[in-house]
């Protein structure tokens, strides 16, 4: 039997994005799975506990002082109030961990993408594979977190299951956008930009309290931020609130996904096909 590498690549001629896409992003996923199996799982497991710890400490600690919260759907515990926000945050963190630091390392230190792009793979395969991996991580965190809140009795309806697809959309948006920005970063110092941006966004996006505590202009800024959009998307999905509002949140993430994919592919092409 002979290698059919050439025939396979020639089969792509005339197909969608033939210069940038070989139709094999799953091989990039497979590579990450092989690496994950042997060592990377520790980091992945630790990422799951972060939102759970927030839920337990804030939800039950501060919840004791705050008491029940009245919402349009009736009175709920403080832990139940913050759960959707923490879920959105955990999807974001899962996606961002893979699409920022891990991508930066593969891009600049291990030269992994350079090796991939010396084969018949294209930059879009690499971008899609990496983003799919990151969003799987975000999706797994979201699913596990949903199971935890259901176990704690914080879920009031079956709509809560929609938290999972909502969180996957959130993870996709952050993974795609995160990888695009990372591909332009040149040093570790620049990578700290993500931390500078993510922590305040987490604290001020209204995961722990309603946005109405802020003046109108501040609310407007926060509402434009992706984490606020994510919290709204997850909260609305979990409470079965479908309307124009959730559609806006959904569209926001679709734009984020497309813009991120476009710039990642273009940048990888510029970096490795110069």
């Amino acid at each position: 039997m002979r290698s059919n590498a050439v025939e396979l690549s020639e089969g792509r001629i005339g197909k969608f994005g033939e210069k940038y896409y070989a139709g094999r992003p799953q091989q990039v996923l497979l590579r990450n799975w092989l690496s994950f199996k042997s060592s990377a799982w520790i980091a992945v497991v630790s990422g799951f506990f972060e939102p759970v710890l927030y839920l337990l400490s804030f939800g039950y600690g501060i919840g004791e002082l705050v008491g029940n919260i009245s919402t349009p759907g009736g009175d709920i515990s403080y832990a139940a109030y913050i759960a959707p926000g923490l879920l959105a945050t955990s999807a974001m963190n899962g996606a961002m961990l893979d699409s920022t630091w891990n991508v930066f390392f593969k891009l600049n230190e291990s030269r992994l993408y350079k090796a991939m792009l010396a084969t018949s793979l294209g930059p879009l395969d690499v971008a899609l594979g990496e983003i799919a991996w990151a969003l799987m991580r975000g999706g797994i965190y979201a699913t596990a977190f949903t199971a935890v809140i259901a176990g704690l009795g914080l879920v009031t309806s079956w709509w809560a299951l929609l938290a999972i697809p909502a969180a996957i959309i959130v993870a996709f948006g952050f993974a795609s956008f995160g990888m695009a920005i990372t591909s332009f970063m040149k040093s570790h110092h620049q990578m700290n930009f993500f931390e500078i941006f993510l922590l305040p966004m987490f604290l001020f996006s209204g995961a722990f309290y309603p946005l109405t505590v802020f003046p109108g202009w501040a609310q407007a800024i926060i509402k434009a931020l992706p984490l606020r959009q994510a919290i709204e998307l997850v909260t609305r999905a979990m409470s079965g609130e479908f309307g124009i509002n959730i559609l806006v949140n959904f569209t926001y993430f679709m734009v984020m996904i497309c813009v991120g994919l476009f710039f990642t592919t273009r940048r990888l092409n510029a970096l490795f096909m110069k």
Binding site: S9, A22, R24, Q27, S35, S38, K114, S120
Partner: peptide
């Protein structure tokens, strides 16, 4: 400059590289 996949074993490196070509 070598750009082997340091997180994988010797045979996994050959395996995944072949998969990149679609083999």
């Amino acid at each position: 400059q070598d750009n082997l996949d340091n997180e994988l074993t010797v045979s996994e490196n050959i395996f995944i590289y072949g998969r990149y070509f679609g083999l």
